[in-house]
Design a protein around this nucleic acid. Structure first.
Length: 583
RNA sequence: CGGAGUGUAGCUCAGCUUGGUAGAGCGCUGCGUUCGGGACGCAGAGGCCGCAGGUUCAAAUCCUGUCACUCCGACCA
C-alpha cells in the first residue's frame, strides 16, 4: 500500500492519557485512537496487526480440528439466566433493552450460546468430540478500563469450546488446545510462559494461563528459579515450611491504646514494630453459621482461594458488623486469641505466622493493640483439648519472592509480572447440565457433555507484543504480526530514476506476496525514517541516489544495528526470501 | 464504588494564586529556499477556556453543581 493514501497519524508527543509503553505507542504510531474510555478504533496499522494475529490463531485452531463459527454478540438474557451468570457476572454484563422490552446482553464470553447450540444439535456420542470457536468482539463493562488495549471494555477474543463424551476425551481436547496455544504464541514471536491458574468461580478441575512476561503486566507470576514451576499468585503454592507454636513468651502482654489506627502500617509506625512482627488477623463469617479467623504475618497477604479450599467456599468477609460485634469480635482490632472462649470458631494460621517470636497483634478491644502475643500462652493453652480441632496451621497466604518452591527441590520462588493473553479451562459439566447439553452413549444412557473452554485476547497480544518488543524509537514487531513486512523509502521524490526503481521494487515485492508499504510521501528523509521506526516495520529498504549509482539498495532490519547494501538487480527475490524466513 | 488529579487550538502545555481584549511549541494551509535522520524564512487558518448555574460593571481565572478523562485502591474470567 502507498503511505500517502493511508491514515497513519503519528505524533512526536506522547499523549497525556497513556501511562504504559504499549498504550503510548499504539497512539503515537497511529495504530489506534480512543473513542471513549475503554473503546478504540483500530486504524489501518492496528487493524492489520489484529488480522495477522487472528490469522495465526485461526490457522492453529483449524489445524486442531476446531471449527470457526459466528454466534451473535447480542444475546437474550434468558440464556444467561439458565446458568445463573446474569447474576454472577454482575454489572460487568452489559444489558440492553430492545424496542419490544426484551433484555439482551452484549456477550462478554460465549459458554451459554455455544452450549445451547450443542444442546439443540448434538444428541449422540458419535458426534463427539466437537470443538467450536469464534473470533469476535466481546464486551465487558469493566469497573475500570485501563492501559489502552490491555484492559478495554470492548475487545476481540478468540474463544473455543470443546465438548467430549468422557473425561479422557476432555483431557485430550485440553491438551490439544494447550499445544495449539504454544504454537500460536511461538509463531507470534512472543516470550510467554504457561502458569497454573485458579479456576475460580467458573469451576472445573484444571486451568492454565498463557502469560506474556513484562513489567506492565497486571498479573503476578511466581516461578522457581529453574523454571520447573510457574503459577499465578492466585494459586501459587509454597514448599514445606516449619512452625513452632510452643515457644516461651517474649514478655508480659502489653496493651497499647491505638485510637483510629487500623492498618498494619499505621499501627506499626505508632508502636515502632515492623510488619514481619505483626500478626494480621482477618475474620470471615460462615454463611451456614459460625466464624473463621485467618492469621498471616503482617508483611504477607491472605490468599482467599487457599483459605476457602480449606475452610469451605461459604465464608465471606462481607458480613454485618453488628453480627460480628455480637459474636465478640472487635473488628479492626482482632487478635488470634479471639478464638478462645467462643463456640463455632475455627482459627487458620499460616506457617510463618505460627512462630515463637515477638509478636504484636490486635488486642480484641476497640482501639487497642497488644505487644508480646504468644501462641502457647494466649491460644494453645487456653484452648486445651479444643486446640486440635480449632487451631489449624496451613498455607493460607499468597506466595512471595523468596519462598521455597512447592516441589521442595531446593528452588526458591521469584516474582515476575505478566499479561494474561490466553486461558484454558477444564470446565466439566457445569454449563452442559444447566443448558441441557446431553448425549446418548453406546448403552443409550444420557450424559451431559464434558466441556472445556479456551480463550485468547487478540488485542492483548498486540498490546503485549508492543509492551515486550519496543525500543526508544518505537515499536519493534516480529515479522509474523507486523502490519507490513517491508517498507520502501525512496529518497528524492524529484528524481525519476529513484521513483522508477521504487515503483518497480514495490510491484515486484507485491507480486512475490510480500506485505509492502511504499513511503511515497513528499517528505524529508528524516521524517520517513522516524515514522518507519515508530510504526515498527521489520524491514526497511532505502532507495537513494548514491547507492543506486552503484546499482545498490540499502537494506536494514528494525532489530539490527547497521544497514547493508544489496544489489538492486534481483533485490525483490532476496528480500522476499528474507521475509519468508522470518514469518 | 472509595481516594487523588486533570479538562484552555488537532497534540503537548502555559495563563488561574492577585478577575480587565486568548497564549507558546509542535502539527495544519499557501509561497519560497532546502532535501540521507523529525529543515528554514515569510504569510495565514484554527479556541463559547468541558457543560450549566451563580457572584461581579466585568469570569478561562472566584463559588456551586454536573459531565468526561486519567491514576491508586477495591471488584472481576
Amino acid at each position: 500500500m502507498r503511505y500517502s493514501k493511508l491514515l497513519i497519524p503519528t505524533t512526536k508527543e506522547t499523549p497525556a492519557e497513556a501511562e504504559i509503553a504499549s498504550h503510548q505507542l499504539l497512539l503515537r504510531a497511529g495504530y489506534a485512537r480512543k473513542v471513549a474510555s475503554g473503546t478504540y478504533t483500530y486504524l489501518i496499522l492496528g487493524h492489520r496487526c489484529l488480522q495477522k494475529i487472528m490469522g495465526i490463531v485461526k490457522a492453529e485452531m483449524n489445524r486442531a480440528d476446531a471449527q470457526d463459527i459466528l454466534p451473535p454478540i447480542l444475546q437474550p438474557i434468558e440464556l444467561w439466566k439458565k446458568t445463573g451468570r446474569d447474576v454472577a457476572y454482575g454489572d460487568t454484563l452489559s444489558r440492553h433493552i430492545d424496542r419490544h422490552g426484551r433484555t439482551n446482553v452484549l456477550a462478554p464470553t460465549a459458554e451459554e450460546v455455544m452450549t445451547d447450540l450443542i444442546a439443540r444439535e448434538v444428541s449422540s456420542y458419535k458426534q463427539l468430540p466437537i470443538n467450536l470457536y469464534q473470533v469476535n468482539a466481546k464486551f465487558r463493562d469493566e469497573f475500570r478500563p485501563r492501559f489502552g488495549a490491555l484492559r478495554s471494555r470492548e475487545f476481540i477474543m478468540k474463544d473455543a469450546y470443546s465438548f467430549d463424551a468422557t473425561e479422557e476425551g476432555l483431557d485430550k481436547s485440553y491438551q490439544d488446545m494447550h499445544d495449539a496455544y504454544c504454537r500460536i504464541f511461538e509463531k507470534c514471536g512472543l516470550d510467554y510462559v504457561v502458569v497454573d491458574a485458579a479456576s475460580g468461580e467458573i469451576g472445573g478441575t484444571g486451568s492454565q494461563e498463557f502469560m506474556i512476561r513484562c513489567d506492565a503486566g497486571e498479573d503476578l507470576i511466581l516461578s522457581s528459579e529453574n523454571g520447573d514451576y510457574a503459577a499465578n499468585v492466585e494459586t501459587a503454592g509454597i514448599g514445606t515450611r516449619t512452625f513452632d507454636l510452643g515457644g516461651e513468651p517474649t514478655g508480659e502482654r502489653d496493651l497499647v491504646h491505638t485510637p483510629e489506627l487500623k492498618t498494619i502500617e499505621e499501627v506499626g509506625k505508632f508502636l515502632k514494630v515492623k510488619a514481619p512482627n505483626f500478626l494480621k488477623t482477618l475474620v470471615f463469617q460462615r454463611q451456614s453459621g459460625g466464624w473463621v479467623i485467618a492469621v498471616v504475618r503482617g508483611d504477607h497477604d491472605l490468599n482467599e482461594n487457599k483459605l476457602k479450599a480449606l475452610a469451605g467456599q461459604d465464608i465471606t468477609m462481607e458480613f454485618d458488623l453488628a453480627a460480628a460485634e455480637a459474636a465478640g469480635f472487635a473488628i479492626g482490632f482482632v487478635g488470634p486469641d479471639a478464638v478462645v472462649g467462643k463456640d463455632n470458631v475455627t482459627l487458620y494460621v499460616d506457617h510463618d505466622a505460627a512462630a515463637a517470636q515477638f509478636w504484636a497483634s490486635g488486642a480484641n478491644q476497640v482501639d487497642h493493640h497488644a505487644k508480646h502475643f504468644n501462641w502457647q500462652r494466649d491460644v494453645v493453652a487456653p484452648l486445651g483439648d479444643d486446640a486440635e480441632a480449632k487451631l489449624i496451621v496451613a498455607d493460607i497466604r499468597n506466595a512471595a519472592a523468596g519462598d521455597p518452591a512447592p516441589k521442595n527441590d531446593g528452588q526458591t520462588l521469584v516474582e515476575t509480572h505478566g499479561i494474561e493473553v490466553g486461558h484454558i479451562f477444564k470446565l466439566g459439566t457445569k454449563y452442559s447440565i444447566s443448558l441441557d447439553a446431553t448425549f446418548l452413549d453406546e448403552d443409550g444412557e444420557s450424559h451431559p457433555c464434558i466441556m472445556g473452554c479456551y480463550g485468547i485476547g487478540i488485542n492483548r497480544i498486540l498490546a503485549g507484543a508492543i509492551e515486550q518488543l519496543h525500543d526508544e524509537n518505537g515499536i519493534v514487531l516480529p515479522m509474523a504480526i507486523a502490519p507490513f513486512e517491508v517498507e520502501i523509502i525512496p529518497i528524492g521524490n524529484d528524481k525519476p530514476a529513484i521513483q522508477e526503481k521504487a515503483e518497480q521494487l514495490y510491484a515486484d515485492l507485491k507480486a512475490a506476496g510480500v506485505d509492502v508499504l511504499l513511503d511515497d510521501r513528499d517528505a524529508r528523509p528524516g521524517v520517513k525514517f522516524k515514522d518507519s521506526e515508530l510504526i515498527g516495520i521489520p524491514m526497511r529498504i532505502v532507495i537513494g541516489e548514491r547507492g543506486l549509482a552503484e546499482g545498490k539498495l540499502e537494506f536494514k532490519s528494525r532489530t539490527g544495528d547497521g544497514a547493508e547494501m544489496i544489489d538492486a538487480e534481483g533485490a525483490a527475490e532476496v528480500i522476499a526470501a528474507r521475509v519468508a524466513a522470518l514469518r
